[in-house]
Design a protein around this nucleic acid. Structure first.
Length: 580
RNA sequence: GCACCCAUAGCUCAGCUGGAUAGAGCGUUGCCCUCCGAAGGCAAAGGUCGCACGUUCGAAUCGUGCUGGGUGCACCA
């Protein structure tokens, strides 16, 4: 139940009636008519811009339309007051019974309250993480993983058919480097001195890989030329890395639906097919690129290359898909991979990239636009970096020494729940500070704690009522006499709960899961505020002398708890019942 | 040189896709509390939304041009 869409229906219906009555011209476009929460609650519970939006096409002054509409809306049993304000806003005040009914609806809906069907079952593919399978995931990957997973949860909740996907970059030179690095560890496992040359991966995490290679191959690969062992070791090491990455993701609570392999695109004609598809659209040609103006690379020399005419689809320059020796560039399999996603029938694609890949956005969108004839939109979310702090001091990590903070380190230090919540407390394109101490602080300054504490308080009050012998199961609470919830502070909290379905839709439409985290913080704040007022005004406490009143109050608390749990579920955070 | 991202209170950040007097936390100032309904509460001060034009009933939000910061810029993935 979304009160805003219901009231919008009412507004549209009354506008239609005004057309019928000849008060408005026929054929008006109503799509811009919105019913929203007003910025200032003093203005009312809801506001509509209908009169202002329609003034010009209807050829009438906005206030005149607003006055006429107000008179009609005021007759609805749900509307307590309809007032024209400002340039033509129409502010609505709802009757308490509407809010009381909402509490009941929340309790009956449970965590399905707020679920939406705006996605219409459309198939959306969310590609995220896609870290190179050459080592453990580090903090840089964590944020992308959390955002992608939470976004997937959000879209699923809003009615999309979501596929979470990880693209394994196992086709390029970096997995050869992995194989060579693992081979040295294999030699080490056989009692030889490893030669970790410059350019190889020095990390200790390859030691177990070396040992596993020894267990499988014994000494048979020793002193063999590279072309004998490279392919086998590469596959073996890549598989072990992916195993590790899967476990790391699991530790963070992330489960992928599909792992797609870059290597699998080679030798199957898929790359050729994708390029041929583009060629058939006259988007592939042989040519020589101009050097970038202002900054010509030292070793620049004109080269004849196979180019993708990405400029035909909004890119700034055309992009090479084949090197001068005829082999594919990295971009070619990326095109084939996205072609593959389009062919699998997705209606929408979302890629989550690190901000350092911002340069690829236009060419990737160009490729998808061309390959799908503009049918499939591709949204690319760029994730800004995470700066680590420890007690307010920058937390240094040295890549050169091979000591970097891994995903596993973060999860072990602060837990998956805290990690996930904090990663969503900023818009994806804003840099985020992550302080190992502050995120664990038990105070109002810490949004994670603040939201969890709200839920704990709700559970605490439920326990207390139960101990006092009051039935507080959801069915009983839904049947309580909710008319007892009539205090302005209580109705205000309900109004906040009424925003939840709308917030889900807005967040999903914009692919912005962080909004959920901010909403939960606000909801927690309202809950704490009401709780604090109970310190002075006993009548606002949740547990009362009289069982019926207690049930009504607890129904509100429980409804708030339902929404908090629902929101936390989207973030992938486990609600806590007690603060300990 | 070009492209993309960012710029909002002293600090860290929201701002629901164009709405009303731009919000929150921290910090500051002033009261209150020290009660496990505990891990504080209430209130106040604090703003040229980087700058300048433009679009319209209306702009932090859209467009153009600047300023400052970040990222990336042909056979590396």
């Amino acid at each position: 139940m979304n009160l805003f869409t219901e009231l919008r229906k009412l507004v549209i219906a009354e506008l239609g009636a005004m057309v019928e009555a000849g008060a408005l011209p026929a054929g008006l476009d109503m799509t811009a008519v919105a019913v929203e929460p007003p910025r200032d609650p003093a203005h009312g519970d809801m506001a509509t811009n209908a009169a202002m939006v329609l003034a010009k096409p209807a050829g009438q002054p906005p206030r005149a339309i607003a006055e006429a509409l107000a008179a009609r809306l005021a007759a609805d049993p749900r509307v307590a007051r309809a007032e024209v304000a400002g340039p033509g806003f129409l502010n609505l005040r709802l009757k308490p019974v509407v809010w009381q009914g909402l509490v009941k609806a929340v309790l009956q809906g449970g965590t399905d309250y707020g679920r939406s069907d705006i996605g219409g079952g459309a198939k959306v593919n969310v590609e995220f993480v896609s870290a190179n399978p050459t080592g453990p995931m580090h903090v840089g990957h964590v944020r992308g993983a959390v955002v992608g997973d939470a976004l997937s949860n959000l879209l699923a909740f809003a009615g999309w058919n979501v596929t979470r996907e990880y693209y394994i970059n196992d086709g390029g030179a970096q997995v050869d480097v992995l194989a060579r690095s693992a081979y040295e560890r294999y030699r080490e496992a056989n009692g030889l001195e490893p030669e970790i040359r410059e350019g190889l991966y020095p990390g200790d995490y390859l030691i177990p890989v070396g040992e596993a290679l020894k267990a499988k191959y014994g000494a048979s690969l020793l002193d063999q030329p590279e072309d004998v062992w490279l392919a086998e070791v590469r596959e073996f090491a890549t598989e072990m890395m992916m195993q590790m990455i899967r476990e790391d993701l699991a530790a963070l609570g992330v489960t992928m639906d599909v792992f797609s392999s870059e290597k699998a695109l080679y030798g199957t004609g898929q790359i050729e097919a994708a390029i041929d598809t583009l060629r058939g659209m006259d988007l592939i040609y042989e040519g020589v690129l101009e050097p970038p103006k202002g900054k010509t690379p030292e070793d620049w020399e004109p080269r004849q290359q196979t180019l993708f005419r990405s400029t035909a689809h909004g890119d700034d320059v055309d992009r090479p898909v084949q090197k001068s020796d005829g082999s594919w560039t990295y971009f070619a399999p990326d095109i084939a991979y996205h072609h593959n996603k389009v062919k699998r029938g997705f209606d929408q694609l979302i890629d989550i990239f690190g901000a350092d890949h911002g340069g690829y956005v236009k060419r990737m969108k160009a490729a998808v636009s061309a390959l799908s004839n503009g049918r499939v939109p591709l949204d690319i979310k760029l994730i800004q970096l995470v700066k680590l702090y420890k007690n307010g001091e920058p937390f240094k990590m040295s890549k050169r020494a091979g000591t970097f903070v891994t995903l596993r380190d973060v999860v072990e230090m602060v837990g998956a729940d805290v990690t996930r919540f904090v990663m969503l407390t900023r818009k994806n394109d804003m840099a985020l500070d992550f302080d190992f101490d502050k995120v664990l602080e038990q105070s109002k300054d810490n949004p994670v704690f603040y939201v969890q504490y709200a839920n704990a308080r709700i559970n605490s009050v439920l326990r207390k009522a139960r101990d006092a012998g009051v039935a507080v199961d959801d069915a009983t609470l839904a049947g309580a006499d909710l008319r007892l919830l009539d205090h302005a502070a209580e109705l205000a909290l309900i109004a906040k709960l009424a925003e939840w379905p709308r917030l889900v839709e807005v967040s999903a439409r914009g692919n912005e899961p962080h909004r959920v985290a901010f909403y939960l913080y606000e909801l927690a704040s309202d809950l704490h505020g009401l709780w604090n007022r109970g310190n002075d005004e006993v009548s606002l406490r949740f547990v009362q002398e009289d069982a019926g009143t207690t049930q009504a109050k607890i129904a509100l608390a429980r409804a708030a708890g339902v929404v908090i749990c629902s929101g936390l579920a989207i973030l992938g955070v486990t609600p806590v019942e007690e603060m300990r």
